[in-house]
Nucleic acid binder design. Structure first.
Length: 198
DNA sequence: TCGCCGATTGTCT
DNA sequence: GACAATCGGCGAA
């Protein structure tokens, strides 16, 4: 599997969020490599999106990576968990795509070890915090370019546009109109998408 | 520094 | 369905 070239990330954020569906997300660690197929994403559109950390161009140490080149990792810690975003938008345009769910592909033994509380394979990676834990993604991956080890994305299967389902994002109450924006995408019928999705 | 809050998950009722 | 876990970012003091 070859990493997606940097040019791939230079497309409109909503397009990128859809294009990432079906791609492989791979993480290599000293303990081994684990990977999965991206089956659910959400777009966060910087300046005009009240739900985005970069709303109104807010530029801080945390959001800094979103103002740079697309194709880098924006990791964010939420309560006890770590969430992975793919930086999108041209330089100076702070957009990102949140990876919400994966279909386990390789390194399943590792995932089972890292997700001892999961009752089955589906629960290894059917949520943003879960998939980060299953693959061993942490805050130390902040700012990492996604076209080289140890954390990278490669082209996967082609997804028929008719198989892409669209809906509102999850978990962003108190963000006004932004709650309703249809900026979440998933592979229709895939059983590894997050709960409440289908 | 202090206090509050959250793009979640897991457990308990 | 309710709520605790648990910690860094952010804004105010």
């Amino acid at each position: 599997m070859e990493p997606l070239e940097k040019g791939f990330y230079y497309q409109p954020t909503l397009e990128l969020a859809k294009a990432l569906l079906g791609c492989f997300l791979i993480k290599e660690t000293p303990f081994g490599t684990a990977s999965g197929i991206i089956v659910e994403t959400e777009a966060y559109m910087g300046p005009d999106d009240r739900a985005a950390h970069s709303f109104e161009g807010r530029r801080t140490k945390r959001t800094e990576v979103m103002f740079g080149e697309p194709g880098f990792a924006y990791t964010y810690s939420m309560h006890t968990h770590c969430l992975l975003n793919v930086v999108s938008g041209k330089i100076g345009q702070p957009h990102a795509v949140l990876v919400r769910a994966l279909e386990p592909f390789s390194g399943k033994e590792l995932m089972a070890e890292r997700r001892p509380k999961a009752k089955n394979e589906i629960e290894w990676t059917n949520g943003p915090g879960k998939l980060a834990k299953a693959l061993g993604i942490t805050m130390s991956d902040y700012g990492h370019p996604l076209d080289e080890p140890p954390l990278w994305i490669s082209k996967g299967m082609n997804i028929d546009p008719r198989d892409i389902a669209i809906g509102p994002r999850i978990g962003i109450q108190n963000t006004g109109e932004a709650v309703h924006y249809p900026w979440r995408f998933w592979i229709s019928g895939n059983k590894f998408v997050s709960p409440k999705t289908q």
